[in-house]
Design a protein around this nucleic acid. Sequence first.
DNA 1: TTGTAAGCGTTATCAA
DNA 2: TTGATAACGCTTACAA
Lengths: 324, 324
Amino acid sequence: MTTIKDIAAAAGVSVSTVSNVMNHKSNVGEETRQRILRLCQELHYIPNAAGKNLKTGESKTILFNFGDFDRSFYLKIIEGINDYAGDNGYDLMICTTKSCEKYMHNKLTDGCIILDYRMEDKTIQRAATEQYPIVVLDRVLPHPYIKSLVVNNYGPMTELVEGIVERGYRKFAFIGGIEHTDDNKERFQAFIDVLTKHRIPFRRENYFSGDYREQSGYQAAKIFMSAPELPEIFVCANDNMAIGAMNALRERGYRIPDDAAVTGFDNCERAETAGLTTVAAPDYERGYLAASSLIENIKGGGNFELMKLTAVVEWRKSVGICPF
Amino acid sequence: MTTIKDIAAAAGVSVSTVSNVMNHKSNVGEETRQRILRLCQELHYIPNAAGKNLKTGESKTILFNFGDFDRSFYLKIIEGINDYAGDNGYDLMICTTKSCEKYMHNKLTDGCIILDYRMEDKTIQRAATEQYPIVVLDRVLPHPYIKSLVVNNYGPMTELVEGIVERGYRKFAFIGGIEHTDDNKERFQAFIDVLTKHRIPFRRENYFSGDYREQSGYQAAKIFMSAPELPEIFVCANDNMAIGAMNALRERGYRIPDDAAVTGFDNCERAETAGLTTVAAPDYERGYLAASSLIENIKGGGNFELMKLTAVVEWRKSVGICPF
DNA sequence: TTGTAAGCGTTATCAA
DNA sequence: TTGATAACGCTTACAA
């Protein structure tokens, strides 16, 4: 492991001179600079980020945190973040829940983007400061140094359920995601508001509380199938659960949408091939915007206003005209 | 930002005492320990990893590097790595190509798993040492401190192409991935070997060199469709390109597999819903094994022998019985 | 049981 | 144009 000292020794100069070269300072003789640069190449010198951080208190690195490996659109978000950060001189570091706090504090990173719903509000709010701005995705957090970037769930869910009602469906089941998430609350609220508006009854037994994973949708559908009457349509809080539900229904020989219709939310990769009616959020764009907001805020120029992106309903063959 | 000094001051002790508490040393009085622990809670003290690394030269963190956001099974690999690392007291840090080298050197991480094919062999070989073992996925790299973990491409591709021949197909097209990758070479070699064995001619014009992305498969199919005669089957080096090809074919009104059959490789999420015949690699398991090998090697107990995982062919409806 | 001090690799300040 | 030196937050001998 080559350090700045090794380079200094090899070049016969002091460490400060090497440091000055590495940081493109102008106070170094051209000949010395060249010699040092050559040595860095030869000895494969890469400055130690820990040492640098410790001293400067800034890392030119942003952190992205996620914790759900079932949602393939996360990769699109990462791609958006990666592209913006890369183009703007910032490194991207990604971590899963467990290790995140360590990197958030202490200026190991300059700011972060949080997507993991298991990260507690309090933790995030405590970490955010003027010097360490945070962007949260898919949740709204009041705090002077946290910017929330959400996709508007209420609007498109309203549109979706209105469309379903229009197609004649009346007996609804709702497969919800993690209860306390804003996403889930908004999606359910839009759902129930449309039903109320049309005076369509919805009984609490027809709400199943899942965890956004495919397995829980599968399980939910199994439970609904054991009831005396099958719902006409399963509105699910995300695609994974919708796909789980579809699988369970098909296993029992039900056809979709003839025997029961299903809708999701997210427009994940499989939704298209599965013909699942769903709501499409702009993932790459979300990531890109999150990174750009964060970096603006790190630099001090930005703002912390809530930002809403709009998603659109994708009608596919998992919903037809209600045959009942 | 609370530092060890703040805690020491608040508790009226020296920093070494605080350090001893944080590191579960036994040489601290019980009452002092309690007081310090309480203060850490109250002041939200989180030890600065940079300072710690710098001093100890170890981070209890492993690094995972990837760089392709199109391949959703990467998340499964990450999940496997994350689970093993988490269960064994290691943190996981993930980075994309650009920022990787910085974290590889200098003991910012204790070892790494490399999946990005854009990372050069030389770079990896230079970074690997007894103190910094590396695991590479999907490529074979001779080096005393690099362990290669590959899925056996040759075997399952042979099985796949044999099966295709058996079903009566004779006019093949091959849509390859990035030329220099071992994956691509092996997949193509198996393909050509089976054809040769059965004396089925394959002309170089029927090889298209893609880049593993959906777009390049789409493009490839378009090019093949502009030739006088359409191949009976498109064997693709991965699923993304296969799905791209399927889309292009369908856009022109061709039915799959009636007018042309298609196969992929990877068994990505969409492959199942798309009914694509493909080869399934055990992704979660790969990640898990990679992490376990790496951590063994960090601890010094492991080995650096090449490890091969076997993939299996998944026959789906994108290949039928050859109608020609 | 606790404290002192050196040092990890860097940068910044100041002096030469 | 260069070099000493202190400091960032932490651990670890060693001394008290």
